[in-house]
């Protein structure tokens, strides 16, 4: 199967001008990811797992190498694509799930969750219905749906966050410790959704605090080692 993602000798360094220093995150990293495949990034803290996810998402800019992504329109290099294209892909097919809430003040939980659907063109009511279904699935109590998540506890915020990130069946999901600070039920709901997405062909690459939760989903593992040239064979 044609990989959806082909990472080719990717290098990320941080140039810190005020210190006149350069930090090396990873160098010459190459791997591929096929549709429906689930990749686990492993390695000790500070090795650059989150950095890699963010570089793939273009929150960080790669210094060298390519991130070939197979978009429906054709192949595009996420490392050098135009910002506006990246923005389109993020809206449409590349999701990033973190433990940090992207909630905004004075917007109800169900509206936050429904937003990706609305942006994709779903009618407001329909989107809300779907949003409520996901809030329920992740165990957010019904009386919180109309409330503003900025006032929620960390765990509840995380559930809203996950519901929002996973409401759309995207093509590529980047998972940055999505299970952190989740209770058991919510974790189970998350894993169930991930399994569902995987079965529908969504490619996933992620960092997990407790990989045991998703052990049955993992196809391959990419161990990152500090300051070494990592190369993972297919």
């Amino acid at each position: 199967m044609t990989p959806i993602l082909t990472v080719d000798t990717l290098t990320k360094t941080f140039r810190m001008h005020h210190l006149d220093q350069t930090l090396h995150a990873f160098e010459g990293l190459s791997f591929t990811l096929a549709p429906g495949e689930f990749l686990l990034l492993s390695g000790p803290n500070g090795v650059g797992k989150s950095t890699l996810l963010r570089t793939l998402y273009r929150s960080y800019r790669a210094q060298a190498g390519h991130i070939w992504y197979e978009a429906p329109e054709g192949r595009i290099d996420l490392a050098s694509a135009a910002d506006i294209d990246i923005a389109l892909l993020r809206r449409r097919e590349i999701g990033f799930v973190t433990q940090f809430l992207t909630a905004r003040p004075r917007v109800a939980a169900e509206e936050i969750v429904a937003e990706p659907l609305r942006l994709a063109g779903t009618a407001h009511q329909e989107a809300l219905t779907e949003a409520r279904r996901w809030l329920a699935a992740f165990g957010v109590k019904e009386d919180l749906w109309r409330a503003y998540p900025t006032t929620f506890s960390g765990g509840e915020q995380q559930k809203v966050n996950l519901a929002r990130a996973l409401i759309l069946p995207q093509r590529l999901l980047l998972l940055d410790e999505p299970t952190a600070s989740l209770d058991k039920n919510a974790r189970a709901a998350l894993v169930a959704r991930l399994a569902e997405l995987k079965a529908s062909g969504v490619a996933m690459i992620g960092v997990f605090h407790h990989p045991g939760d998703v052990a049955h989903l993992i196809d391959r593992e990419i161990p990152l080692a500090p300051k070494e040239v990592a190369h993972v064979a297919e």
Binding site: E73, G74, A81, A82, D85
Partner: peptide, 8 residues
């Protein structure tokens, strides 16, 4: 220089 978008 702005890269021309390819998808948009």
């Amino acid at each position: 220089a702005l890269d021309a978008p390819r998808l948009v």
